[in-house]
């Protein structure tokens, strides 16, 4: 099963040809952190993480039903973080 990783802002520079997203095989990634490692993105480069539109922690496990992971860089930390329940 594949899932889509969507990058925003300067994080897109990590993908070739100015692509906005990449399809990855879910079975090869245990957690969001594994995806960051694969894309060579440090944890402290990322602000908001949404797994299937749910505000998530970097340690959150990627399940077979997950379809979309969105990653925003530090300078896009515009959400008022206390308003969200972060899933771990």
């Amino acid at each position: 099963m594949s899932f889509k990783v969507v990058l925003f802002g300067d994080l897109r520079k990590r993908l070739s040809n100015k692509k906005e997203n990449i399809e990855l095989n879910q079975e090869e990634f245990h957690s969001v952190k594994d995806v960051l490692d694969y894309l060579d993105i440090e944890v402290d480069e990322v602000s908001h993480i949404f797994l299937d539109h749910s505000y998530s922690d970097v340690g959150r496990k990627i399940e077979s039903e997950n379809e979309r992971l969105a990653l925003f860089p530090k300078d896009m930390a515009l959400l008022y973080k206390w308003y969200f329940k972060k899933k771990e």
Partner: peptide, 11 residues
């Protein structure tokens, strides 16, 4: 308007 993508991903 940078918030469009962020709030969209937040559902």
């Amino acid at each position: 308007d940078v918030l469009i993508n962020i709030i969209n991903e937040a559902g």
